[in-house]
Design a protein around this nucleic acid. Structure first.
Length: 335
DNA sequence: TGCATTTGACCAAA
DNA sequence: TTTGGTCAAATGCA
């Protein structure tokens, strides 16, 4: 029985790898339009996630075969030189406090134009409550909590830290789920108007950022490398409808195409693939952006999921049976 | 004036 | 004792 499950997963992973290769080929074929580029990135990202999901294991009482090696981007996750990277040892490091909160990480690459503004908003209102230099880390870590913490008792928090290796990448660790309502009608009209005036292009920017679109000018990071870097004010959206297309949303939709039992927030990333799920899977339904109905994303999501669903659709996964010794170096795809 | 950010201090886990 | 996470007073901004 167990060997059957392992075999099935290997088959699925092989299929996904093929899909990944095909998507890469497609990326090289199509005309260099922004839309198709985004789609290609999304497909590659999603397939990579699926692979990593299969490679992931539950943290509870088990070692974690998945780590930075499985980053589909090929970028190692050496956020902290002391080894306590955002993703590695996530279960251990983050279990210091609030052990019951679901946690997951994302890595978001900001576009060149917004690289100094910090990570794109994710459809929720965040209030910064602290920033701390992390031992061995080049950049400080910023702490955010939901703006509606006191009003609605929302316990969602997130930590944002710029990647050392690629300053254009923000590691965002979410902790807790949003219980607040940030529906458009609850957001301040004044704020909405203000944001629209200030950042009319933000929607597109965030969409691109969430998908980790390749930035055109990644070399222009001289300022990013400054040790005096500090995080900008939390981008406040407050309007989940107008500020969507965050990576989390994309991921949630993507994840939604799979069977819930093995969906985990821990794998919810824009383009890099996190360690295996560490927390209650049942809490996933209350993820950070689950209340954001991006019907307009359906087309994109369906396109993204189609690539992987073709192989996954009818398969029944049992990650608890997954062979821990089966390891894939997905970096091999990124040559 | 109200809200958000900054930043030093404090607390708790390892 | 060290270090990460949080608190809260001070400060800034619209």
């Amino acid at each position: 029985m167990k060997s059957t499950g392992v075999w099935e997963r290997k088959q699925v992973i092989n299929e996904l790898m093929q899909g990944y290769e095909h998507a890469k080929q497609l990326q090289g074929v199509h005309s260099p339009s922004a839309d198709t580029e985004l789609l290609s990135q999304s497909i590659l990202s999603s397939i990579g996630k699926a692979i990593n999901m299969l490679l992931s294991r539950d943290c509870e009482g088990e070692t974690q075969p998945t780590d930075s090696r499985y980053s589909i981007s090929g970028s190692p996750h050496s956020e902290n030189s002391n080894g306590t990277a955002f993703r590695e040892d996530e279960c251990r490091v983050l279990s210091k406090k609030r052990k019951m909160d679901p946690k997951w990480t994302e890595q978001i690459r900001v576009s060149a134009g917004s690289s100094l503004e910090g990570p794109p908003h994710d459809g929720h209102s965040w209030r910064k409550y602290g920033q701390k230099d992390i031992l061995g880390a080049k950049y400080p870590r910023a702490y955010y909590r939901c703006t509606h913490k006191h009003v609605q008792g929302c316990s969602a928090r997130k930590q944002v830290q710029r990647s050392e290796e690629d300053p254009s990448i923000f590691n965002i660790m979410y902790q807790g789920t949003h219980t607040c309502m940030q529906a458009p009608h609850l957001a301040s009209p004044k704020l909405q108007e203000k944001q629209q005036q200030q950042h009319p292009q933000r929607l597109l920017l965030n969409f691109r950022s969430g998908l980790k679109v390749k930035t055109e000018d990644l070399d222009t990071t001289q300022d990013l490398n400054s040790s005096s870097f500090s995080f900008p004010p939390a981008m406040d959206c407050g309007n989940s409808t107008n500020c969507t297309f965050s990576s989390t949303i994309m991921d949630n939709h993507f994840m939604g195409s799979f069977s819930p039992p093995f969906i985990s927030p821990a794998t919810s990333e824009s383009n890099y693939f996190s360690v295996s799920p560490c927390h209650q899977l049942s809490s996933y339904g209350g993820g950070p952006n689950m209340q954001t109905p991006e019907s307009e994303l359906n087309e994109i999501i369906s396109a993204v999921t189609a690539a992987s669903n073709s192989s996954l659709g009818d398969l029944d996964f049992h990650l608890d049976e997954f062979d821990p010794n089966l390891q894939f170096d997905t970096n091999a795809f990124l040559s």
